[in-house]
Amino acid sequence: MVLFIEQLLNGVQLGIFLFLVSAGLTLIFGIMGIINLAHGSLFMVGAFVAATATTASGSFVVGLIAGVAAAGVTGLAMEYFILRHLYHRDHLDQVLATFGIILFANEMVTIIWGRTPLFFNAPDILNGSIELVPGIIYPVYRLFIIAVGIAVAALLYGVITRTRVGMLVRAGATDREMVGALGVNISVLFMALFGFGAMLAGLAGAMAGPLISVEAGMGESQLILSFVVVVIGGMGSLRGAFIGAMLVGIVDTMGRAFIPDLLKLFLPIAEADGLGAGLSSMSIYMLMALVLVIKPSGLFPASSGSH
């Protein structure tokens, strides 16, 4: 039971990362109908800059801010120089051009920071563990991530449903041309949104830094998982991204923790380990296939705004 609750919390924490990455992905797609493979590179930039800034300044907060800012600036540059020219192209062009950005970004990061993974620590206050309920001890840093993620999700929800900007975002997702025709400067709105999405991805990367090794290509597994998230949740829907991220995070973590043990009940240990590892890394894709069979456009499809 203790293990179960710990793994559940780990699943929520993975879900938070996935939500931060997929929020930008899904909003950008919802408004501009553009698929950006290089979104994972922003996660990577956030992590690298946060690692360097934390080590240089000795302050995790400075690192976090630097990581978020760097990802935001990189995102704005990406939008201005490349993606802007792809809005009216088909998805294939968008995929190829952003694939080119990934090659460039990974290689650039290798040139600047080298091939050795970077490590940095969370500040001391966040380093310990606390006893949540008697018998369940959990690292403070992971709780911190969960808290930040939920705060960001609540903030986003408030902005999208309660403010004028949020209204424009929702309207843009429904009918982009019409919003433009009503006199809203769509390209400024999009650039702002893109920068914001980039900052969220950077935040996830910067917070992930102390937990995973910071190396070139680290954003890609996050990107592919985020794709699974938005397919499950429905493209363009923030609520879908949140619920999809939680589902994927929990199913993935739980699968890894328990499928091998379950298999050991009726298979030899060596085979159960191998098969279990395979099955548990495939579990989220099976979840995705299941959702697709039942609801081909995801659990919370946004309206038909895109192509």
Binding site: H91, V95, I224, F227, V228, V231, G274, G278, S281, G298
Partner: peptide
């Protein structure tokens, strides 16, 4: 459309992990 791109990518990734686990 874009769903198709993501889903084919995800299934390929599933096969990748299947091979890694062999």
């Amino acid at each position: 459309g874009v769903y198709f791109i993501m889903i084919t990518l995800a299934f390929a990734q599933m096969i990748y992990f299947l091979f890694v686990s062999l």
